[in-house]
Design a protein around this nucleic acid. Structure first.
Length: 421
RNA sequence: GGAGGCUUCGCCUAGUCCGGUCUAUGGCGCCGCACUGCUAAUGCGGUUGGGGUUCACGCCCCUCCCGGGUUCAAAUCCCGGAGCCUCCGCCA
C-alpha cells in the first residue's frame, strides 16, 4: 500500500515507477480518483453526522410538545446520514481496491525492465576448476553421499519433494545453525515462527497479489502455508507501535517454507533446486524509513558474510523493477556459481519494502516528536536448503567426497569431509 | 468436539442489568509545570488511535474486539463472527 500523500504530491514518480515495472500506469490515475472521491464522501458524511448528533441531543432534552416536530427532522437527517455513510463505505472500498492494485514505488536507481534486465553489482571468488575429473551434479553427489533421496521423496509426497538423510540432514542443520549463530552475534533475535498464517497476514505482506497461485492454502481452516518466515515475522508486530529509538528491531526466523511452484513446470525438475518445501533462516528488520537504505546495505553484507563462510563463488545482482515483488522497492540477489549448470543461481534475496508492508499490516513506530509513523520493513536470506546444492557441487572432489568449508566444520562435529557411503 | 466466562483510550479498571450531559470513571506509567538545598514526596495540568478541514490556533467526525440489525439516538438492546481463558471429552 503506497503513501497517498506521495501519490498526490509526486504523482509522476509513482507513474514512472509503474512504467519501470512494466505495469499499467492508469492504475495510478484510478487510485488518485478513488482517493479524491473518498475525501468528498467522508466530508459530507461527517457534516451530516454532526447535525444528526446535535438534533439527537435536542430530542433528549425536548418537552413532550416539541418532540414530534424534532423527531420528524431527526428522521429525515437519519435517512440522509444512512445514504451518505453508504456512499462513504463504497468510496472507501473502491479506494482499498485501487490501493491493492498499485505495487510499491521503486527506489531511485532501480533498473527498469524485467527478469533479464538485472544489473550485476559485483562478482566474488574464483570458480572451481576440477582437475582430472568431470564434476558430478548435486543429485549424483547427494545419492553417493546418502545425503539426498529424491526418489523416495517423490514416492511419499510427489514431485519436488525429497528426504535429506544422514550427512545431508546434518549438513543442512549445520548450515542453518551457522546462520543462526551469525545472526545472534550480529544482535538478531532468533525466532522459530508459525508456518501457517491467517489471510490478513499473508495478504498484508503482499503475497496474495499477482503471485497468489504460488501459495498453499488450507481451505478447511482458511490458513495459508508460508513461503518464507518473512510472512510471520512481518505479522509479528502487526497492529503495534514499536519503539525504534534504539535502532532497528531485527529478527532471524527459522522455518520450513512451502511453495506451490505453479507455472514452473519443466524447470529444475531434478534435485533440490526448486522444491515445494525447504528450510530457511531469514533476516527481518523493522526500522525507521530514513534508515532503510543503510539497513538494506547491511543485510546484503550479512548475506555475503555467510557466502564467504561457505567459500562459494558468487555474484550480486540488482533485480530490475519488473522482477521485484509487489512489496519491494529495491532488491538484491546473491547468486552462487553452480558448476554443472555453468551459471549462477539465486541463493539469497534481500528486499527493502520501505513502508509498503507496514501500511497494510499497520506497523508503526514513534518519531522523535512522539507521533506514530509507519515503519520500514526489510528482509534477507541467511541460508536455505538450496545452498546445499552449491556447497556440494563447488567443494566436491574426484572420489565423490565433499570438503566441508572450515567455518562450517564446528557445526558438523569437526567433520572435514563428507564421504560417499 | 461439548459447556461456561471474558474482550473498554500503553497496562489495570468503573460503566453494560434499566439506551440520551459516556463529550467514558479511577489507578499505574509517561510528559510538563509548581514547590523543596538535591533526590524523594506532594500539588496542578496533560496523555487512545484514525480521518476530514485549516497557513495556523482550532473545529468537526469516527473509534468501548469485529460485522450486521433495532432506534431520532447504542460501550449499553438483538443477531452473527473472531480472539483469549477455564472445565470436560478425544488425540499426540
Amino acid at each position: 500500500m503506497i503513501d497517498l500523500r506521495l501519490l498526490r504530491e509526486d504523482t509522476d514518480r509513482v507513474r514512472a515507477s509503474q512504467a519501470a515495472r512494466g505495469e499499467d500506469p492508469s492504475t495510478v490515475d484510478t487510485l488518485l480518483l478513488a482517493a479524491e472521491r473518498r475525501r468528498e464522501t467522508v466530508g459530507r458524511a461527517d457534516t451530516l453526522r454532526g447535525e444528526q448528533k446535535t438534533i439527537g441531543k435536542r430530542v433528549s432534552q425536548a418537552t413532550p410538545a416539541e418532540r414530534p416536530a424534532l423527531m420528524t427532522q431527526a428522521k429525515e437527517l437519519a435517512a440522509a446520514v444512512r445514504s451518505a455513510v453508504a456512499d462513504e463505505a463504497a468510496a472507501e472500498a473502491a479506494l482499498r481496491q485501487a490501493q491493492l492494485a498499485v505495487p510499491n514505488v521503486i527506489e531511485d536507481g532501480v533498473p527498469a525492465g524485467g527478469e533479464d534486465d538485472y544489473v550485476v553489482v559485483k562478482e566474488i571468488g574464483d570458480k572451481p576448476t576440477f582437475a582430472g575429473f568431470t564434476p558430478r551434479d548435486h543429485v549424483g553427489l547427494g545419492r553417493l553421499l546418502g545425503a539426498i533421496d529424491t526418489e523416495r521423496g517423490a514416492k511419499v509426497s510427489g514431485a519436488r519433494f525429497y528426504f535429506l538423510t544422514g550427512q545431508g540432514a546434518l549438513l543442512q542443520l549445520a548450515l542453518l545453525n551457522m546462520a543462526v549463530a551469525q545472526a545472534v552475534e550480529t544482535g538478531f533475535t532468533t525466532v522459530i515462527t508459525p508456518t501457517l498464517v491467517r489471510p490478513e497476514v499473508m495478504g498484508g505482506t503482499g503475497y496474495l497479489g499477482a503471485h497468489a497461485t504460488e501459495v498453499y492454502r488450507l481451505e478447511a481452516d482458511d490458513l495459508y502455508l508460508v513461503g518464507t518466515s518473512e510472512v510471520p515475522l512481518a505479522g509479528l508486530h502487526m497492529d503495534e507501535i514499536l519503539d525504534l529509538s534504539a535502532g532497528p528491531r531485527r529478527y532471524a526466523g527459522w522455518s520450513s517454507c512451502y511453495r506451490r511452484e505453479a507455472g514452473s513446470y519443466g524447470k529444475d525438475t531434478q534435485g533440490i533446486i526448486r522444491v515445494h518445501q525447504f528450510d530457511k533462516v531469514e533476516m527481518f528488520s523493522y526500522c525507521d524509513p530514513a534508515d532503510a537504505r543503510e539497513e538494506h546495505d547491511r543485510m546484503l553484507a550479512w548475506e555475503e558474510q555467510m557466502l564467504a563462510k561457505v567459500e562459494l563463488p558468487y555474484r550480486v545482482i540488482e533485480t530490475a523493477a519488473g522482477d521485484l515483488g509487489s512489496s519491494a522497492a529495491r532488491k538484491y540477489d546473491c547468486e552462487a556459481w553452480i558448476p554443472t549448470q555453468g551459471r549462477y543461481r539465486e541463493l539469497t534475496s534481500t528486499s527493502n519494502c520501505t513502508t509498503f508492508q507496514a501500511r497494510r499490516l499497520n506497523i508503526r513506530y514513534r518519531d522523535t516528536e512522539g507521533r506514530p509513523q509507519f515503519a520500514a520493513t526489510l528482509n534477507g536470506t541467511l541460508a536455505t536448503t538450496r545452498w546445499l546444492v552449491a556447497i556440494l557441487e563447488n567443494h566436491q572432489q574426484a572420489d565423490g567426497s565433499v570438503a566441508v568449508p572450515a567455518a562450517l566444520r564446528p557445526y558438523l562435529g569437526g567433520r572435514e569431509v563428507l564421504q560417499p557411503q
